[in-house]
């Protein structure tokens, strides 16, 4: 009876180790980093436009559940972006020619982001997160990992101002596509925002109306 129990517990322990190693991230070697960056850069050069749905989970430690919102996004290279929440409320933000246009449930506002360094950084960060093209060693300390299914690039801002807002950005790239499938924005408090992209369409037709609020 003791023998069976010991085998049983050993099996559980082994299973636990295997399960955790699936979620565990391994650091990429120098060669792997080069291959990965080259794969993403090549892919992002071919992306003229990107349409995708997304689900956003906002985790705050003191809440019982994550706050879930969802919507869609349209991107046109190099720097046009419309990020639109549709559920549970309507809110969209368009980044266009240095200006930011917001439509918050019918309340519209616009402001000039150019010349404002903080906004320019955030603008670049969002577009970079979406396109995967943000390997800027001047702006971020970057480290590279992989798990069972994804490459994971982690970006820590070097700018003090940006660090106050975001402590770390994680981008997840499936092995077979080199296109960002998930973004995780970590705050220094431990809270985070996780955005999962679904139904991605590369180089689908986009029009100017996709970037008007």
């Amino acid at each position: 009876m003791n023998k069976i129990r010991n085998v049983f517990f050993s099996l559980i322990a082994v299973f636990a180790v295997i399960s955790s190693s699936f979620a565990q991230q391994q650091k990429l070697s120098a060669n792997e980093i080069t291959q990965f960056k080259s794969g993403v850069t090549e892919k992002s050069k071919k992306i003229k436009s990107l349409k995708t749905d997304f689900v956003q989970h906002k985790h705050m430690s003191f809440l019982s559940n994550d706050i879930e919102t969802s919507g869609n996004m349209v991107f046109q290279a190099p720097d046009l972006l419309n990020w639109r929440y549709t559920k549970p409320y309507q809110y969209s933000i368009v980044f266009k020619k240095g200006k930011i246009h917001i439509n918050d449930q019918g309340n519209k506002s616009s402001f000039d982001a150019s010349g404002n360094k903080m906004f320019e950084k955030i603008n670049k960060l969002i577009i970079g997160s979406v396109s995967g093209n943000m390997f800027d060693d001047n702006e971020f300390s970057i480290s590279y990992y992989k798990n069972k299914t994804h490459y994971v690039a982690k970006f820590i801002p070097k700018s003090k101002d940006l660090k106050k807002v975001i402590a770390e950005i994680e981008l997840y790239f499936p092995f077979d596509t080199f296109v960002v499938s998930e973004v995780k924005l970590n705050e220094s408090s431990g809270d985070y925002t996780r955005i999962v992209f679904k139904n991605q369409q590369l180089n689908a037709k986009v029009s100017p109306s996709d970037f008007t609020n």
Binding site: Q56, K58, F62, I67, T69, D104, V165, L185, T193
Partner: peptide, 22 residues
């Protein structure tokens, strides 16, 4: 705006952007 009753006396209130930044 997120509000949570922490205990009998205290509530926690967080204002955040629509993106979720506190």
């Amino acid at each position: 705006v997120v509000i949570k009753k922490i205990n009998e006396d205290i509530h926690r209130v967080v204002f955040a952007t629509d993106f979720g930044n506190k």
